[in-house]
Amino acid sequence: MVYRNIKLVDFNLDDRRYRFTMNPADRRLLRSVKEVGVLQPVVIVSRHSRPVLVDGWRRVEAALTCGLEELPALEVATTNDDLAVFLLAFFGNYGQRTFSLAEKSLAVRKFYEFRLQAVDLIERILPLLELPPERRMLDLMLEVSVLEKRFLEIMHRRDWKPVTAELWLDFSPAERTWLYPLLERLTHNQQREVIENFHSLQKKIGRSLAELAREGELAGLIDRLLKGESGAADCLLTAIRQANSPLLSRINKAIGEEIKRLNLRGVTLDYDRSLEKPTLCLTLEAGELKELRQTVKSLSGSLGSGGWHRLFELLHYEGE
């Protein structure tokens, strides 16, 4: 490789054939470049007589923002083919940080387009990307890599896992477009849950997402979320979870109402919401002996009411 300074205007930045990373130049890098310029040379290769960037996209972006005119660069010999050059781009970043799923998919796509054999991609590259070395994973990555840029960005920002991406690909393009504004307002975990739950719900009831979203409670919650109302995301998640889990939701609701009706003072009732353990956990709270006596007395007094019986019946409920 040859070291030289290169003018930014000489770059063909439209040629992004080696780019698979997605992080933009952040404030810290901008500040650094502004103070002392770009210290670490970018990597370039000449294609059609113009330098094409191989590695250093963030540095170039920062240099442009800071108004620099030239950069230090390491130039790779033109005789190297695209695959050899891309290997430099890949390993130049590989040791720096973990790639997001979107970046992994783009890297796989580049290797594929630069004609790395499928068997090498599966056996050598996928394990490097901490992905299972299977044909199916290669196919999934190739599918993900051609998703719309905005979808890739959301996958990148929220660090999706392959299983979420796979469900995402199962939605139709129209459904993805419908879901996108919702996802933008959710955290990583919320995105995963919304996708899983919508996917499951849609399969269960055999209706499209658009139809589901027009239904009473969901429609209202989606509207609130899109308006940016705080807490709307959690409410929407609860509603989809309940729709996906009608039996437990119904029993839990009935148990909650029964506990409320018991109106116990100084006693907290808890139980396993999954109903795997059909037991109640009672916690007594008292600051002094007198208070404890009163709490126990009131608790004992309440045992005669039908509420407790109904509560245990609900905990031991058998049915569909």
Partner: peptide, 25 residues
């Protein structure tokens, strides 16, 4: 297959199962 489109809970050992009331039924 429709068998995975059902109500499941995540049990203590981490597996998905039908909810206990349904299993008992």
């Amino acid at each position: 297959s429709r068998i995975y489109e059902h109500e499941f809970i995540r049990s203590g050992e981490g597996k998905y199962r039908y909810p206990r009331p349904l299993r008992l039924r």
